[in-house]
Measured scan of single mutants.
Amino acid sequence: TKIIYHMDEEETPYLVKLPVAPERVTLADFKNVLSNRPVHAYKFFFKSMDQDFGVVKEEIFDDNAKLPCFNGRVVSWL
């Protein structure tokens, strides 16, 4: 699974690849690859589809939650 993530106000996003199927990747999986960053200091928002509003940034805080996936990749903002 490819996860593209944006940090603070930085213009260029980062990319990490996880050896987990897109439909199975969790917030804990993502946090594990960010071990060099203080993950407890961040809120995690993900590109998600809402039936009422369309594409939104959804906050996910449960480490066991599966991450929303679009075209085989996850897009996140920290």
Rank of each mutant, 00 (worst) to 15 (best):
F30H: 02
P19M: 06
A28N: 10
K2G: 06
K57C: 15
V33Y: 09
T12S: 12
H6P: 05
G54T: 15
Y42I: 07
V74S: 03
F44H: 01
E9F: 08
V74Q: 08
P38Q: 14
K2D: 13
I4V: 10
P22H: 05
H40N: 07
K43E: 03
L67G: 03
F44I: 02
V74L: 01
F45M: 07
A41L: 09
W77I: 05
F30V: 00
V16Q: 03
T12P: 06
T1D: 02
V39D: 07
A65T: 11
H40S: 10
E58A: 11
V25N: 04
S76T: 04
F45G: 02
V75C: 07
M49S: 15
A65H: 05
V20H: 03
V56F: 15
G54F: 05
N64Q: 09
E11Q: 11
A41S: 11
F61A: 11
K66R: 11
N36H: 09
I60Q: 06
E58F: 12
P19I: 00
V20Q: 05
E9D: 11
E9R: 10
F70C: 10
M7N: 02
A41M: 14
S76W: 01
G72A: 03
T12V: 11
M7R: 01
V20T: 08
V56Y: 15
E9H: 11
T26A: 04
Y14M: 15
F61L: 12
E23T: 08
K17M: 14
A28D: 04
H6G: 01
P13R: 06
N36A: 12
N32S: 11
F44S: 01
D62K: 07
L34H: 01
L67N: 02
N71R: 09
K66F: 04
Y5C: 06
T12M: 13
F61G: 12
A21C: 09
K57V: 15
C69P: 01
K2M: 10
A21K: 12
P13D: 04
E59W: 07
F46C: 03
T26K: 03
D50K: 15
K57R: 14
I3G: 00
Y5M: 05
H40M: 10
T26H: 00
G72M: 01
A28V: 05
R24P: 01
D29Y: 13
D63E: 14
D63L: 03
K47R: 10
N32T: 09
H40L: 08
F61C: 12
V56S: 15
T26Q: 01
T1K: 05
Y5D: 03
E59K: 00
L27Q: 00
L34M: 06
Q51W: 07
D52S: 13
E58L: 15
R37D: 05
F61P: 06
P13W: 14
W77C: 00
D50T: 13
M49Q: 13
E10P: 02
A65N: 03
Y14D: 00
F53E: 15
K66W: 03
F46V: 03
G54H: 15
I60C: 07
T26V: 05
S48L: 10
V20P: 04
N71L: 04
L67Q: 03
E11N: 13
G72W: 02
F45W: 11
G72S: 04
F44V: 01
L18S: 05
V16T: 04
E23Q: 07
V74M: 00
Y14F: 14
L78Q: 02
D62C: 15
V20E: 01
E11F: 04
I60N: 00
L78S: 02
V25T: 02
V33A: 14
E11D: 13
V20M: 11
S76L: 06
D50C: 11
A21R: 08
A65R: 09
L18P: 00
F44Q: 02
M7F: 09
M49P: 06
V56G: 13
D52G: 13
N36R: 10
V74C: 06
T1P: 00
P38M: 09
F44E: 01
E58I: 14
M7S: 04
P68R: 02
V25D: 02
S76F: 01
A65Y: 05
V55P: 09
Y5T: 00
V75E: 14
V39F: 11
P19W: 08
F53R: 15
H6R: 07
R24G: 09
F46P: 00
Y5I: 13
F61S: 13
R24D: 14
S35V: 14
P13I: 06
K17A: 12
K57M: 14
K43L: 04
D62E: 09
M49I: 06
A28Y: 11
K66D: 05
T26S: 05
L67T: 01
S48I: 12
Y42F: 07
Y42L: 09
L18E: 04
V33T: 08
R24C: 12
H40D: 13
N71K: 10
S76H: 05
P22N: 05
I3R: 01
L67F: 00
W77V: 05
E59F: 05
L67K: 02
P19K: 08
K2Q: 11
K57P: 07
L27V: 00
E11I: 05
E9G: 13
A28F: 06
M7C: 11
I4G: 02
L34P: 03
P38G: 15
P22G: 04
L15I: 14
P38L: 09
T26P: 01
P19A: 10
V25G: 02
N32R: 13
Y42T: 06
E10R: 08
V75R: 05
K66C: 09
N71C: 06
I3Q: 05
D52L: 06
W77M: 00
K57T: 13
L27C: 00
S48K: 15
P19F: 04
I60R: 03
D50N: 14
E10L: 09
L34E: 02
V55G: 09
Y14L: 14
F70D: 03
F53P: 09
K47T: 07
L15Y: 15
K47A: 10
P19Y: 09
D29L: 05
V25S: 01
R73Y: 05
I4D: 00
L18R: 04
D63H: 03
I3C: 03
E11Y: 04
F45A: 03
V39A: 08
K2R: 10
N36Y: 09
A65F: 01
K66G: 06
E58R: 15
Q51N: 14
V56L: 10
L18V: 12
P68H: 04
D63V: 03
P68D: 05
P19T: 06
E59D: 00
K66E: 06
E59C: 08
N36V: 11
V56I: 13
V25C: 08
V55Q: 10
Y14A: 07
T26Y: 03
A65L: 01
F30I: 03
D8Y: 08
A41K: 09
F61H: 07
M7Y: 06
S35Q: 14
L67H: 03
N71F: 04
A28S: 10
V39Y: 06
D52P: 12
K17Q: 14
H6T: 08
V56W: 10
L27S: 03
K47E: 11
R73V: 11
L27E: 00
L18A: 10
G54D: 13
F61D: 10
E23L: 04
D63R: 03
F61R: 13
K47I: 07
G72K: 02
W77A: 05
P13G: 09
V20G: 02
L34W: 03
N71Q: 11
E58T: 15
I60S: 02
F45P: 06
L78V: 10
A28W: 06
V33N: 02
N32P: 00
N36Q: 11
V25P: 00
G72H: 04
G72T: 00
S48P: 02
D52M: 06
E59I: 01
L67E: 00
N36W: 08
P68I: 04
V25K: 02
P38E: 13
V75G: 02
D52Y: 05
D62M: 10
E23F: 02
M49L: 10
T12R: 14
F30Q: 04
E11W: 06
V16E: 04
M7G: 02
F30C: 00
A41N: 12
E59G: 03
R37E: 11
E9P: 09
